[in-house]
Design a binder for these strands. Structure first.
Length: 579
RNA sequence: GGUGCGGUAGUUCAGUUUGGUUAGAAUGCCGGCCUGUCACGCCGGAGGUCGAGGGUUCGAGCCCCUUCCGCACCGCCA
């Protein structure tokens, strides 16, 4: 027996017991004739004490036999702080090199070095808590969905490359020279085929792959909670999965979220928040003021299709320098605004703006009222094309919300965004793209427009599509699907995918729909993001045991890496990379 | 593909504006002292291709060019 107890469980009530502990040496404190050792495992830290000479170093793996005793000097900061183990014998199970950074709550190491020694970083309590939360949430999901009659069914990882969407990771086939598998961006088509097969409640916690550039919240391989149901309408899907989120919040965090969850149409989200994933922890809504300020001789406004504003609480005292800094901020390419107009509503109610010579105080006051600015608030105005300007105001709103401390990670404001447009026109390629994905069905009442050839008609088609949004992050989304072969063919036609191409890429699913496909719909959550947000973080890396860096590299195992010429030959691959 | 910030002891950073003696601090590491520490304390010590390559200069961590790497963001991510 290596241990009788873990390093986190002994208490004053255990005093007098003979115990055996095993773990890693966190810290050694020598005080002349006596030595204190902090022994750590994933359950906690227990202090060891001895008057013998012991030779141990940081991160050595040791086993000690000793007696639990009450401490003379207690430490209220740690759960085991009332006791210590008086060492009888120490056995060194394994020595360790001195780690390149400290294995503590807050490490002295930077991200780079910690990534290279990920297995050491994972010893730290914050990372262990993160992975424990992930585990807890996965358990909650399985318990809830199992209780609702869902079956977890695995789908293949070696599948077929598809045209729409993200870039695929591909895998060469040795047995089929010159041909490739693709790794799934999501099990979308398979889960729909499972619906055709009659497995009417499916879910899977499944790895997905997308070969796109990375971010703090984007990894090339990531995990989805993938779900699909048959014989359901949008209402059924939303109820089922807000129930799942509710039990996750309740059982993992002890947080109650509203029942039912708020819902907002995509159009309202864009108009009021300038984003399809609004952070509704705070107000500061966007208001259109075009009708109030146009036609007064200010050419910048007069030549704009849309003029909108937000009221930033308590910022009327911003200095010229602060306003200039904000102006530069919105003019950065990442935001892309041409300039920034401000209206200060002073504490005494008087108004001062950067456009005073074009507007009367009454006109500016009307603007302040429209945007719900109170005395002491700062009104920020942007103008230009409608959706673009709303998006810029949305970005500015998030920035100001952050600066004012209105984005508390311990506050949770989930909601559904519904009624998405089905299609999105792209000027560059002069074609429609599926806003969600090409298997999303138009709303039944919009089908007449879906079969029209007019661009304006197609643009107003809405879908029974929905996103689950939390604190400004899209955590999941889904839709009611097309289950009719003709409608699916029509979708490919609208998207400019030829009959031949559709047949080659998606023939299997169009064909399946001819054999009695039930009405169905579902959704998928980004599990890594769910974990990060539940943990109050913005980066998902801490919630993945072995993540990749910005360049998609695993710096610990140093992958990707070159392969032998022999392997290349076997796979019929030729390198075009110049050495 | 683009923008910004960064790369200097094992680690985290200062030093770069204005080129000039032997490149500093903290922490970690090693040695000594210390019987109630828990960020232990005190004394001493070792430890540097200043990311790489090239250039300017009497002289480069610092200036110029090229390049590699990390982080954040934009594009991209149906």
């Amino acid at each position: 027996m290596y241990r009788s107890n873990t390093c986190g469980e002994l208490r004053i009530s255990d005093a007098g017991r003979k115990v055996t502990l095993a773990g890693w040496v966190q810290k050694v404190r020598k005080l002349g004739g006596m030595t204190f050792i902090d022994l750590r495992d994933r359950y906690g830290i227990t202090q060891l004490v001895t008057e013998q000479a012991v030779e141990v170093g940081r991160e050595w793996v040791i086993q000690v036999v000793g007696e639990v005793v009450e401490r003379q000097a207690k430490n209220a900061k740690m759960p085991t702080g009332d006791i210590e183990v008086k060492i009888d014998t120490v056995t060194v199970l394994n020595k360790a090199q001195t780690p390149p950074f400290t294995i503590e709550e807050v490490s002295d190491g930077g991200e780079d070095i910690r990534a290279k020694y990920r297995y050491l970083d994972l010893r730290r309590a914050p990372l262990q808590r993160a992975l424990a939360l992930r585990h807890r949430l996965a358990q909650e999901i399985r318990t809830y969905l199992d209780g609702q009659g869902f079956m977890e069914i695995e789908t293949p990882y070696l599948i077929k490359s598809t045209p729409e969407g993200a870039r695929d990771f591909v895998v060469p086939s040795r047995m089929n020279p010159g041909e490739f598998y693709a790794l799934p961006q999501s099990p979308q088509t398979f889960k729909q085929l499972l619906m055709v097969a009659g497995y009417d409640r499916y879910f899977q916690i499944v790895r997905c792959f997308r070969d796109e550039d990375l971010r703090a919240d984007r990894q090339p391989e990531f995990t989805q909670i993938d779900c699909e149901m048959s014989f359901v309408e949008q209402e059924d899907v939303l109820n089922t999965f807000e129930g799942m989120m509710r039990s996750m919040f309740k059982n993992a965090l002890g947080v109650d979220i509203p029942n039912p969850l708020p819902r907002m149409s995509w159009y309202d989200a864009m108009d009021n928040y300038g984003s399809d994933k609004p952070d509704v922890r705070f107000g500061m809504k966007i208001h259109e003021i075009t009708d109030l300020v146009q036609g007064c001789g200010f050419s910048v406004f007069d030549s704009s299709a849309y003029i909108g504003a937000i009221a930033v609480e308590g910022c009327a005292e911003y200095t010229r320098k602060q306003i200039d800094e904000l102006t530069e901020w919105v003019k950065r390419p990442q935001v892309g605004a041409k300039g920034l107009i401000y209206i200060k509503v002073a504490a005494d109610g008087s108004i001062k703006s950067s456009v005073d010579k074009f507007y009367t105080p009454e006109q500016l006051k009307a603007v302040a009222e429209r945007v719900e600015a109170k005395a002491g608030d700062l009104v920020l105005v942007l103008c230009g094309a409608k959706r673009k300007t709303q998006t810029q105001l949305g970005v500015l709103r998030i920035e100001m919300g952050g600066r004012l401390g209105l984005r508390d990670p311990k506050v949770f404001a989930p909601l559904w965004i519904v009624d998405f447009p089905l299609l999105e026109w792209d000027d560059e390629t002069q074609r429609f793209y599926a806003m969600h994905h090409p298997f999303t069905a138009p709303k039944p009442e919009h089908e007449k427009w879906f079969y029209s050839d007019k661009k304006e008609d197609l643009e107003r088609v809405c879908a029974n599509a929905y996103d689950f949004v939390l604190n400004g992050t899209e955590l999941g989304g889904g839709s009611i699907r097309i289950h009719n072969a003709d409608m699916q063919s029509r979708m490919f036609e609208v998207l400019g995918i030829s009959k031949e191409d559709a047949e080659y890429k998606f023939g299997f699913i169009i064909n399946a729909f001819k054999f009695g496909a039930p009405p169905h719909g579902g959704l998928a959550f980004g599990f890594d993001r769910v974990c990060a947000l539940f943990g109050g973080q913005e980066t998902i890396r801490d919630y993945i045991a072995f993540p990749k860096n910005n360049q998609g590299r695993d710096v610990m195992i140093d992958s990707p890496s070159k392969i032998d010429q022999e392997q290349m030959d076997e796979l019929f691959l030729q390198s075009t990379v110049k050495e």
